[in-house]
Design a protein around this nucleic acid. Sequence first.
RNA 1: GGGUGAUUAGCUCAUUUGGCUAGAGCGCUUCAUUGACGUUGAAGAGGUGGCAGGUUCGAAUCCUGCAUCGCCCACCA
Length: 853
Amino acid sequence: MNLPKTYQPDQYEPNIYAMWETSGAFKPSGKGEPYSIVMPPPNANGNLHIGHALMAELEDILIRFYRMKGRDVAYIPGADHAGFETWVVYERELQKNLQTRFDFSREQLYSQVWNFVERQRGNMELQLRALGVSASWDDLVFTLDEKVIKTAYATFKKLWDEDLIYRGERIVNYCTTHQTSFADIEVEYKAEKGKLYEIAYPTLDKIAEIVVATTRPETLLGDTAVAVHPDDGRYKHLIGSHVLLPLTDREIPVIADEYVDREFGTGAVKITPAHDPNDFEIGNRHDLPRIQVIDFDGRMINVPQQFAGIAAPEARKRVLGALQAAELLRGESDIEHNVGHCYKCGNIIEPMLKDQWFLRMQPLAQAATEAIERGDIKFYPENKKTQVLQYYAGIRDWNLSRQIPWGIPIPAFQNTADPDDWIYDERVDEPHITVNGQTYRREEDTFDTWFSSGQWPFITTDHLDGGALSRFYPLSVMETGHDILYPWVARMIMLGLKVTGQVPFKEVYLHGLVLDSRGQKMSKSKGNVINPMETLSEYGSDALRLGLVSARSAGQNQAFATDKVIAGRNFCNKLWNIARFIEDKLGENFHPGTPVPSSLADQWIIRELTGASQQVEALLADYRFSEAADTVYHTIWSSLADWYVEAAKQQNNPDMLAWALDAALRLAHPFAPFVTETIWQTLPWYEKGSMLIASSWPEPVAYDEIAAGEFEQLQKLVNEIRFVSAELPGNKRYKVVYHNDSLIDDNKELIRQLARLEGLETTDQPEGLRLANSGREAWLVVDEATLYEHQSNLEVRLAEAKSHRDVVGARLSNDSYLKKAPAELVEASKKDLSETNEIIIRLQNELNVIRGR
RNA sequence: GGGUGAUUAGCUCAUUUGGCUAGAGCGCUUCAUUGACGUUGAAGAGGUGGCAGGUUCGAAUCCUGCAUCGCCCACCA
């Protein structure tokens, strides 16, 4: 076959992938029970990061496995327009050209970004191919595809008609840099050190004052009340009176509200309904006016001349200065509080009053909660279920509006003559439309991207239209990162139930974050980001996959270690060399017949490989990827390579050898698709065009349990010989003699080779060191001096055996144990005890012999 | 403040209804070897399972408390 000594992934991977793709192996077969996964769409114009690699590998393992199990498999890839992310990148481009979004219409911007994305697009998809994902590329969906928009509109209309959509002036999280609002869960809160200022608001007669505490003095200019607790004796007499708002000529009322915490600050709170969500609610309760003092560009508005047009942080300083000058500043103290930040630029999120589209979440969350409690969706790990339910329990209405041109326009129009008259209409390309003689102006905002991606499972499968892939809805499993449990998974469940009446998927598997080797979060600023493509090109795609999957469990953030990738690469090479050896032994024109086990080793390897295939199946059904990969790794390395291939050198059963290689390749294929397929393509007994990807999962083969067990005994004997001779001085080859032992007799040559013995002979007069652990009648021939030196070894082993006997003996003399423990366990203990006793006797005899000399 | 996860070998992690002597990979030590593979083979060292109690015949696993580290949610101005 002339395979090179080491496996060179880059020489085979691209061709193998192209072969798979052109053969149509990635497409649903149309045969068997449907199995479906929809890939969480990576950013269309970005590069994959290590988390994407993990995602793709986990999904592809499942996909390849179930394809081999004969299921009708759909793995639907996607590409995300990544509304906000992409917009941020594009806006930077605009800045370079000294332009802003306000220089263009929405249509112009949209088509510019479209072209921008188009230029960049494709990298991500090539990278997924390099990872070996067997996705059905023809079915790829881009998040701005016509059908996505169509479905998003239909859903919006449905929700609108059911009165679940409303437009309202609310406090939204607003980034003045990006000039868009965010959903609550998109805001990043950080604990920060700040100052709590105490400011005096004089009473109208200027005789008294009320001191409020605030961290945001600049919003004072928008205050419309001061609130105190209704039972607060300090302020009770002031409730209902008015105070002077400093730096202005406004008079504002002192109101009583239970919300106020008497213990905090001064017990008096300034109320700014336009710039604080709690104040907004208090304002509603007390019918207070709302005065916006920070504009959407972050500059002061509706304020006295001296502050107008000034950016908020600077305004804070000036307000403080002015207060100081007016002698109204009563004190300041350090405080640590949480401040919301834009997750993209890190600037402080301003709570702003804005007219936005909201979705009432209560009814949707209710239905989702019921479905989950009914057990319609299984979560891996299980505790994520509790978290989702909790999220639903405390859910607030969803702000769907984004002020970003790169997205799906909200299909709503406002009557130019009546601002309260909004209608649903899909003619979003027209700035104005006429309906019933009235002119309507379109909404310029777009949808939060999660609104459309929340519908991903039924969009991608064309479920609502009963399209070709609709049999794949609901999905078999939703695999994604645990960080988007709320923004994505929870919403898919709600929208899926609402729109299709079914849960969108039956199971959810959430993987954790991939951390760096020291358990730190990867980030550009720390410089610890690992580029999966670099690792891939250095060690190979399969190695990356094995390395990523190993030592990783559901929902857990876990470190990435190149060590594991190297171990993966070594495994691929091991597999490669097993194949090299076997193919060389079988010859170029070999065509195997039905495997017929003839030796103990044959029986044993059937048991090992068959057992492994069943184990992997059970583990994958439970999403225990790491353990499944581990099983494959050890079966192939420790069983197949270390024992069976070695044993095969002493026997001649080519059909069995071919079967073992074949089974190992199938077993390893979901975990190391490229190397296994590469080897498969070199097997002389398959016709051209036959592919491992399209072959079946190994079927169990019958074997003789007793023979397999006997092989294990031989292994024990070999191990003992190795162990004892390694301990002996001189490190030379020894001879073993045995007495009346047909098992040894029948496998002389095998034992001699495996244990690297000088000789193995039968004898009537045993001599030397008894191999007591094996339970066979065998002795290692050594001279008396060596025997004597070995005495201490024997003594140690005797002591160990005795203490083990004591432990087991104590257990067995315990009445409760005998009564309460399962019978088989008690049996095992009894057997253990008698075996240990035998060993003790032998060791003792052995020692007596030595001592007697 | 509420929730949630972690704490096991030098490192990264397993150990799934509580039951063999708590296992892997990497690292470490010793040794081997010229045709499957040095990306190898053999052997070995290394663990009071965070701490303190409790339940049980039996606990890394269940319960209680404590400690440390993470993450998520909430947002007291």
